[in-house]
Design a protein around this nucleic acid. Structure first.
Lengths: 127, 127
DNA sequence: CGGAATCCGCCATGATACTG
DNA sequence: CAGTATCATGGCGGATTCCG
């Protein structure tokens, strides 16, 4: 996560702490990031519209996660100085490239959640 | 493994708390699950070999995460009653189906981590 | 070797209140 | 509407010890 101990490790280790996958997982592996990206891939949305789309997210986490995505260059924040102010969030070009890998994961979820749940029940029942 | 959902869960409708993607993210969205699955791609491995492959994981989390994957039916644990005992972990058929979506994510990481890091530096510098 | 059990710090998350 | 600020907390994950 944050702690990357400068430990000399054998160079054969395939899954080193600084590999790209680890970094990306640390960023999108939280509770809300993926959900926000998915919620935005049909088009931009306003702050409260996003909050309504993503059931259960708090205002704080919506703000915080959007800031992180903006910092990563995956989401663009646009302010329209109207009254009342309007703020739109949308995926950047880079953010849109995340669609395909995330869609693959989403389709896996839809296709296999049933199997996973069934396996859990067997496991819990027979242990 | 053909998914024939005419209308994806996320299109138009609120992103509900009980949708498959949320459940799966809650399961694989932790610190180690994905890394273990990836580490098992090439074949089974013993407990300590896994620990050596995945830099930074503690014994406790290795055990705990493997138990979760076993419960989900994604990893199979095989005990060989030798002396000393030998335990092998390998992906199940279901676990292997996770390879493609995770590989897509991995490739995205490799391809875009540089852009993300660069965007972060710009963001941190200009705010 | 392959764990189980225990203690514990810390941080991500959540609830609440306030603001421009 | 679109946030910011503050406080409380649950549990994730690390370190250590013990066991068959």
């Amino acid at each position: 996560m944050v702690t990357d101990q400068a430990e000399p490790v054998l160079s054969g280790s395939p899954y080193r702490a600084d590999c790209p996958t680890r970094h990306v997982l640390d960023r999108i592996g939280d509770r809300w990031t993926v959900l926000i990206v998915v919620a935005l891939w049909d088009g931009s949305a306003r702050f409260s519209e996003l909050g309504r789309r993503i059931e259960g997210i708090s205002q704080k986490m919506l703000t915080q996660t959007l800031r992180g995505l903006e910092r990563d260059g995956l989401v663009r924040r646009t302010v329209y100085p109207e009254v009342p102010v309007r703020v739109e969030y949308g995926l950047t070009e880079a953010g849109r490239t995340l669609r395909e890998p995330l869609r693959a994961l989403q389709e896996w979820s839809i296709a296999h959640l049933g199997d996973v749940t069934a396996a859990q029940e067997v496991y819990d029942h027979t242990e």
